[in-house]
């Protein structure tokens, strides 16, 4: 039980990464694959943030003077993830636009029916 107590955030993050990886590996539909990539990205972000957490910590903002600096959580992973989320949506939109063009060209989104995309 205490193992679960300590690692529940890690379990959530790894669960998301593996479910996303499963979707990417197994599904045939291109849009489903992109949904899997987005779930995977959320999992990686959650993992990075939970690495930076400190037990009983506070957010790294000095909004009132009585907040002490010693108990603040690590700001570096938060800064990295913040930009990663915004880049993620732009890259996702680019991937979806490629999917739309593939559909206009081949008339299907099934990766096993598109000859050049089969593996």
């Amino acid at each position: 039980m205490s193992f679960l107590n300590h690692y529940i955030y890690y379990i959530g993050a790894f669960g998301l990464i593996f479910i996303g990886l499963y979707i990417v590996l197994v599904k045939h539909n291109l849009i489903k694959v992109i949904i899997g990539l987005s779930i995977m990205e959320t999992g990686v972000n959650l993992f990075l943030i939970s690495i930076g957490y400190i037990k009983g910590g506070t957010a790294p903002i000095f909004s009132t003077p009585e907040i002490e600096a010693a108990r603040m959580v690590d700001p570096v992973p938060q800064a990295l993830v913040l930009t990663a989320i915004v880049i993620g949506v732009a890259v996702l939109a680019l991937a979806l636009s490629l999917a739309i063009r593939l559909y206009q060209h081949y008339g299907t989104l099934n990766l096993r029916k598109i000859k050049e995309q089969r593996w």
Partner: peptide, 27 residues
Amino acid sequence: PFGTPKTKVGRYYIDKGVEETGATNIV
């Protein structure tokens, strides 16, 4: 490990951030 401080650079930003940049939000 979960919940322990790990990076030194994050500690530096928290200790010196307000003084060096003037922003109260360290992120």
